Deep mutational scan, measured.
Amino acid sequence: MLDDRARMEAAKKEKVEQILAEFQLQEEDLKKVMRRMQKEMDRGLRLETHEEASVKMLPTYVRSTPEGSEVGDFLSLDLGGTNFRVMLVKVGEGEEGQWSVKTKHQMYSIPEDAMTGTAEMLFDYISECISDFLDKHQMKHKKLPLGFTFSFPVRHEDIDKGILLNWTKGFKASGAEGNNVVGLLRDAIKRRGDFEMDVVAMVNDTVATMISCYYEDHQCEVGMIVGTGCNACYMEEMQNVELVEGDEGRMCVNTEWGAFGDSGELDEFLLEYDRLVDESSANPGQQLYEKLIGGKYMGELVRLVLLRLVDENLLFHGEASEQLRTRGAFETRFVSQVESDTGDRKQIYNILSTLGLRPSTTDCDIVRRACESVSTRAAHMCSAGLAGVINRMRESRSEDVMRITVGVDGSVYKLHPSFKERFHASVRRLTPSCEITFIESEEGSGRGAALVSAVACKKACMLGQ
């Protein structure tokens, strides 16, 4: 009897593995994704193909990295998701002549009506938060230079001027797309009239992360975010950046690689679950690469896999709870928690219980395998993109072996128990001629924006502006 049951459990697990095998990517698959990513990057950089390229390769006008001589107080704003952060950054000489960066910050959550109302409502709310922060720190009387981390696709015309191309991540505030974001912020500050600010720089969160990590390690020339969304930036040779005049030196390019796949480059790798996630998203047909990796989508992918296993009578005796059938019910943090389970399955059992399920031991094991399959594919897909960037940098610099540091931020990278190990191992397999160091950014977005502002202020002083 026991043997029969054991055989049935083994057969069930084997069927589960057959279904989950769809998520496995072979090294040849990853090399294919990497080569296609490089081709799209090239198209994004070139003037004649930029418009139709899915990977936009947006110039950021960040050319210099901090040298350690900029000092002063800077205000930093960070808008990239449902939370908005205001930070005071003091850049100065530390002990023994070292450079020191001290920060104080406060988080504000953005109400739904500000995210989806008008641009005026959104930026009025942001300036209200700045006003509140300055009151708390008794700094209303000071006109501070301000660095703005704005983590949406922007076409820069200068370091302090950028046109919002399109909202992502659930934002829909009308009247912002096609307009200068810094102008919208300046107008809102003017409307309030109770404080003055000098907006000197606007950067993407990947750029802010790279600059913040450069402060720790001067070989950091790539910034990457794996959180709600997924994106990367890197220092490109100016001669390859056709959208900006000049051939000397390097400029940081914001790849906006989340949109890779929007022209069909990933079609052969998309599964039924991916198509369902895409169809029910706020932007169907867009940001397809990001939807395979980002935390906004990972939990939902797992939920759809679990429903398939229920329908195949391989999980929960073929019956799903009402909660499990509800879109968004299986949160991405559950994926991390399930994979963090120590082996007694308590954590998995508790999560499934909150979803109205009474799982068996085998159910718990199957749910864990589903989570591992989805998150491992995410790590491997992400590795193909980064390997594409790094191999490109090595080739354009004609280096036999390139040493490089990548600064990384984002909740999936930082909080998932195995993502970074799987990701690092896969990147290294795909970049055999590179020695890569990964560092995690601390308060990256805010500190990085302030350091970019410090560079901009120093330049302005040198130019006598």
Rank of each mutant, 00 (worst) to 15 (best):
G356K: 09
A232S: 07
E157S: 15
E93N: 11
S441R: 12
K414Y: 15
F330R: 00
T255A: 12
Q98A: 05
Q239P: 09
G285F: 13
D363C: 04
E157G: 11
G318I: 02
L88R: 02
E319P: 14
I159V: 13
L386F: 11
V389I: 06
N231E: 12
P432S: 13
V367Q: 00
S433P: 11
Y234Q: 09
M37D: 00
D187S: 07
R275I: 15
C252I: 09
N204M: 07
S441I: 02
E272T: 06
E322C: 15
S321K: 13
R429W: 15
I439K: 04
I293G: 10
W257A: 03
L75C: 01
Q286S: 14
V412F: 09
N179K: 11
G175F: 07
S69Y: 10
T431S: 09
E442A: 07
E421D: 07
W167F: 14
E300V: 00
A208E: 12
E435A: 06
Y413V: 11
T118G: 13
V222P: 00
A176L: 01
C364L: 05
H156R: 11
R368M: 07
L77F: 07
L122W: 12
M381K: 01
R428E: 12
I366Q: 07
E52F: 14
G446I: 12
A119N: 11
R7D: 08
I163S: 12
L146Y: 08
L88M: 05
R345A: 06
R303F: 03
L315P: 00
C457P: 13
E421A: 11
R327A: 14
S321N: 12
L355Y: 06
L430D: 01
G446A: 13
E440L: 11
K142R: 11
S353W: 11
V338R: 00
T361L: 06
G264A: 07
D278M: 12
G147A: 09
V55F: 08
V427Y: 02
E112Y: 12
R275Y: 12
H141Y: 07
F316H: 07
E14Y: 09
R308K: 02
C233Q: 00
D4A: 08
M462Q: 08
T168P: 12
L451V: 11
Y61M: 13
E40Y: 01
G170C: 11
P417V: 10
S418M: 07
S396W: 07
A454C: 13
